Simulated assay, not measured.
Amino acid sequence: MEIKLRSDSVEIAGYVNAVGRESRVLRDRDGYFTETIQPGAFARALMRGKRNMLLNHDKTRVIGEEGKNLELKEDAIGLYARATVTDPEVIDKARNGELSGWSFGFLPLKQDKNAADGMQHRTIEEMELSEVSIIDKRMRPCYKATSVFTRADDGDGAEQLEYRAMDFDSVETIDESERAEEEGEAPEAPDLSKLIAKMEELNKLRAE
């Protein structure tokens, strides 16, 4: 995940999840399983409406909206997100190194299940992508190693909203405001000592 800090905003970009790659072992209310998101599943989900960007999956903390300050697309790797956020809390968390990565919530609409080597495996063919989130270090233990938890929104019998996050890669933070200040300074004079010494040596040879 790449974070670019500016004076009044922060740009956050990276992959939310991969396609065509088997996950580590996950767990839901029915037990343990592995999962693969079929290529094209995100792209088709993105054609159905727009979604919000949240902080830590908190529905009351909307920090972005697709089509405004949030861009989502599926490419050969997976679901890619880029957002420019002006929320003061998110900017502070970014500046303090507290942002950990991307995550998303979804409902499976069509899936294929099978078992091999004593482990259940499912392929997500169609989904409803409900939201994407930036998560901070408070949420990290819940998501490390592509873990999952589910939540019933409206009591028993409700559909289970599921959450996923990529394995945590390094987070690169670039402070664009500091870079702009540095670019305004006079450049450091180059070291010409070796070139001068070489020219003096050539002049001596010519004099001989």
Results as ranks from 00 to 15, higher is better:
M1F: 11
I3S: 08
K4L: 04
L5M: 05
S7R: 13
S9V: 07
S9C: 10
V19I: 15
G20Q: 10
G20E: 08
R21D: 11
E22M: 14
S23A: 03
V25N: 00
L26H: 14
D28W: 09
D30F: 15
Y32V: 15
E35K: 02
P39C: 08
A41Q: 02
A41H: 02
R44M: 08
L55K: 01
L55F: 06
T60A: 12
T60Y: 07
R61D: 05
V62A: 11
V62Y: 04
V62C: 09
I63R: 05
E66K: 04
E71N: 09
L72N: 04
A76C: 05
A76R: 13
I91F: 07
N96H: 12
N96W: 12
G97D: 03
E98D: 14
W102P: 08
W102E: 08
F104M: 15
P108F: 09
P108Q: 00
L109Q: 15
Q111F: 09
D112G: 03
N114C: 13
A116N: 07
G118A: 15
M119F: 10
Q120Y: 14
H121Y: 05
T123W: 04
T123G: 08
I124L: 01
L129C: 04
S130T: 14
S130A: 14
E131C: 09
E131T: 05
I135R: 03
M139C: 08
R140M: 12
P141Y: 01
A145F: 14
V148P: 07
D153N: 01
G157C: 03
A158G: 02
E159F: 06
Q160F: 02
E162T: 03
Y163G: 10
R164L: 12
R164G: 07
A165I: 00
D169C: 08
E172A: 14
E172Y: 10
E178V: 03
E178A: 02
A180D: 01
A180V: 07
E181V: 00
P187N: 05
A189F: 10
P190M: 02
S193K: 10
K198F: 13
K198Q: 12
L205M: 12
R206L: 13
R206G: 07
R206C: 07
R206N: 13
A207K: 06
E208Q: 04
